[in-house]
Design a protein around this nucleic acid. Structure first.
Lengths: 202, 202
DNA sequence: TATTTTCTTTAGTGTTCACTATAAAAATCC
DNA sequence: GGATTTTTATAGTGAACACTAAAGAAAATA
């Protein structure tokens, strides 16, 4: 997303160069927000972890909520990449089973990053800027999910998407509350059984 | 829960009488916390809605988090009463189906009280006093659920309880994000299909 | 009536929150 | 080297947070 279309060689802008790497900062922010939440990670904790003073942070990212928006968009692209699971032509029952079981595993992989950063942030009050951002990202993924299912099951796509989305929220919550991987996988597999009944029914 | 066992006549203690009704205050607090969350409802908003000044609030309830603990315990007894659903001798498949469908309906009944107050509060950071209270209440209900299932399905009680608990968290989250009753019921019924497969399997 | 007890009101406490005005430092352009 | 541009550090903004010290007001008891 640079102004020039060539990728790497660094545009070497004019004034004083930035003293920190923005990608590293986003990674650090992701780790903090995922371990805690948008509200529990204050600006002081954030700038301390980044090794950056508040004015530099605001010059680079605008505000805490804009920084958070960038963090969750990055996270959505890296964690549980839908491209690798919703392969064209693949049977939805298979793909969704893998999605739910992968979610179960991913949500407890790192004990300090339990649950889904996006889904956890999507809860909370309606007005919050961080909640609005998170819901937009979550809904983009749900849209892709529905499109994938609609290719083979157009009539059940919405209901199945609702179920998968709701189940993933439940898995994320359970992971946050301390449920371990084997139990979480049990939940995911029971959900898959319901999913298959719904996909194949009638 | 009075000190005397007779119900109404008021013990008429010494000093100046309390200028407000504690039950009404708890109801109001429940409404506020359920519409928002523990963090979003500040003490100022709370005492304003109660028509009570902070010192009176602290004299009566001790602290915000103790007040909240009382609120969610009351809520757990009133909403989705397990006694009426987990009837002794009833088939778990039936009872759990009713529990999940009732949850779906309850979670969107009042558009300003969406989701489950306890389950929503149970999310959030581990250290929080409000989160600890909410998880204790949630786990008490899950214990009763497991005991009920274990009467007929002792080997699957834990897995089924995990699934029901996780599903209810998902339903609560979906309700909070704006899913309407019919969609939520669809999710609940798909979950019930998985539940039955898990209960009757092998 | 005087005393004791309990609650209420007034008016704050210090802490933390996200955020910023100002000016110095480090780079490029002329 | 001087001007320009951009990011830095210093130091602090007002607002909101949960909570409280001190004294006044309303009841029961002595």
């Amino acid at each position: 997303m640079n102004t020039k279309e060539n990728t790497e060689p660094a545009p070497r802008s004019r004034g004083r160069p930035r003293g920190f790497d923005m990608e590293t900062a986003l990674d650090t922010g992701q780790r903090l927000f995922h371990a805690g939440s948008y509200e529990t990670v204050g600006l002081a904790a954030l700038t301390d972890a980044l090794g950056v003073k508040p004015p530099s942070f605001y010059k680079a990212f605008g505000s805490k909520s804009e920084f958070f928006a960038q963090v969750i968009e990055r996270y959505a692209q890296s964690a549980l990449a839908l491209d690798e699971i919703l392969l064209p032509g693949r049977a939805p029952a298979d793909a969704l089973a893998e999605l739910l079981e992968s979610a179960a595993r991913t949500y407890v992989r790192d004990p300090e990053q339990r649950g889904c950063l996006v889904l956890e942030a999507a809860r909370g009050n309606d007005g919050d800027a961080s909640v609005i951002h998170a819901r937009r990202v979550a809904n983009q993924r749900r849209y892709r999910l529905r499109e994938f299912i609609a290719r083979t099951h157009p009539e059940r796509a919405s209901a199945v998407t609702d179920f998968v989305a709701s189940t993933m929220s439940g898995l994320s919550a359970s992971a946050r509350e301390g449920m371990d991987e084997s139990r979480l996988l049990g939940v995911a597999r029971t959900a898959v059984a319901g999913l298959k009944a719904r996909l194949d029914a009638d």
